[in-house]
Design a protein around this nucleic acid. Structure first.
Lengths: 303, 303
DNA sequence: ACCACTTATGCTCCGATGTAGCATAAGTGG
DNA sequence: CCACTTATGCTACATCGGAGCATAAGTGGT
């Protein structure tokens, strides 16, 4: 009974805003994959190893980086040798975009998660399939219906943006994503829309998205995705893109201001298409003080 | 450049309430250690492996179990071969206590974290040492002072219960815990009180405690530590023990009731030493609905 | 029986916070 | 000059959270 021989791999979900779209850094295709690499003897720490691999494979330096989750189920891929995957979430800006790899929109990979303006993907392509799955097995129907209603916000339940992972897992279980074994060779129209990724990378992406959506509610991490100076409108767009939903503008501004998260630069951006907006800068000092207190976001406007 | 050969180990922080004391399951001594074991080929998943090892080593079945963090820094111990440690947080009740291992009070291991009634450890033994460390290097003093003030709630900053890990790490850096290399052979009175553990297990414990304190604020996990029926007073004691601080009783009750987390059993417990208390039962149904909404706790009574 | 003390429970006051909407400012392109 | 866009200021109102007062119903002691 000796310990299993194992190799460990680092997996990075690197997020940046490209225009109005939240994107993830991917390599190769099709299907695309996340930057990843094995843990080597020279690596000092897991975090350092992740930084190195991302830099080597994509030519990009990461700023913010936090550990996400460690996966090691036996059936992750077909192979008998087990790989432990330690995943990280990184945040950057797409500036100086000289690297390799492609910024791919989150919502091309998980389209049902974008409920900012158009919920037709959700209501037309996902919800019906999910409901059908629930009713498929009469003995489980009531339990499944409850679960669907909560994770997808059906039957009067609220849509909860940060249940990303629960939604993906339900779709996987239901065989509604092509990665699922039970979706083997299902035709495209019996499957939910959204580009697939290598292995379980789409699940890892969902884990990252879930974490990020949860985190922006209590830590000022949004600013890691902004350029040094920005208007409150841009900041709001960013938050809305991440959360996948619209926010009450006036309340958003008040909240940001009263928390003293930003300071006025005295400059204005006239390129807004409307009244020029003031430019602000993130007050990095608050990172010290706000270890716990965090950014609060106004809860979401009902439409 | 092949992948490093590695073994992976599961580490469990298993928590239960023994009387009024929150405890962690430990083995051996001195110094005590957390239940742990290598990942073996037969293990289906990391979580299953953790369950097995805990059961085998302590004779206890776990209920709630969630992944905490994965450690793999090169300098974790002296050895050149790297071990990846994947830590889990488990919650149980100490019922049917037939197993091996000892329930050891959190606060014998991290005494400064208990600010429920007596803060003398903190104010007499920890704060002065921490302050001294900050002032030790004039060039870093201002930065360090800020950090100390925030993590330990000095100079008007609020005490934040869930900064457990930050506090431990500061003490470690400052050489104020005997585990720290820079505390090598320091006499006991130049070190902060609290029993040490094997390796970095005390850091892992701090990670678990931090997670738990954060989590009880937004998920109804406290109930995993309660027996099936309990009074609101017992529930409050449990929360206070976990958070390490006192809570306003009336507000606590209001909060629990208005969230409909519990239901009245119709019975009473006359053993309270005062007016008999109603017995309640956790409404397991809410686990479904409350995936995100969570238990809110009233913030803390000022004394 | 009465008293001091303990825990349980009900209720109110008030300030902070969050939600929603109205109104105005200052640009753009026709 | 007008219609439209985005930015920004302000207010009314509901809800929530924090703190305290008051009462209920047990205990043990004299």
């Amino acid at each position: 009974m000796t310990a299993e021989v194992i190799s460990a791999e680092l997996l990075a979900v690197v997020v940046a805003m490209v225009g109005d779209e939240p994107c993830v850094l991917t390599l190769g295709d099709p299907p695309p994959r996340l930057p990843a690499g094995p843990l080597l003897p020279g690596h000092r720490s897991l975090q350092a190893a992740t930084r190195r691999w991302v830099e080597e494979q994509t030519g990009r330096r990461l700023g913010y980086l936090e550990q996400l989750y460690t996966f090691a189920d036996l059936d992750r891929d077909g192979s008998p040798a087990r790989t432990i995957s330690i995943s990280y979430l990184g945040l950057t800006t797409p500036n100086a975009d000289t690297g390799f790899g492609a910024w791919r929109g989150w919502y091309s990979l998980l389209p049902w998660e974008d409920t900012r303006t158009d919920t037709s993907v959700l209501t037309d392509r996902v919800t019906p399939q999910v409901r059908a799955w629930a009713d498929q097995q009469p003995s489980l129907a009531s339990e499944r219906r409850q679960r669907c209603a909560i994770t997808f916000g059906l039957d009067g339940n609220p849509w909860q943006p940060d249940l990303v992972l629960q939604r993906y897992e339900l779709l996987y279980e239901a065989g509604l994503v092509p990665e699922s074994p039970s979706a083997w060779r299902r035709p495209d129209d019996e499957v939910v829309p959204g580009d697939r990724m290598v292995g379980d990378h789409r699940r890892v992406l969902a884990t990252g998205l879930a974490r990020l959506r949860a985190k922006i509610q209590y830590r000022p991490v949004v600013f890691e995705l902004m350029s040094p100076e920005f208007t409150l409108g841009q900041l709001q767009d960013c938050v809305e893109a991440l959360a996948g939903r619209a926010v009450h503008t006036q309340n958003f501004r008040r909240l940001i201001e009263q928390q003293a998260l930003v300071e006025d630069t005295g400059q204005v951006d006239a390129e807004t298409g409307g009244r020029p907006a003031r430019l602000y800068r993130f007050r990095r000092e608050v990172l010290q003080v706000r270890q716990a207190a965090g950014t609060k976001l106004p809860t979401i406007r009902s439409r």
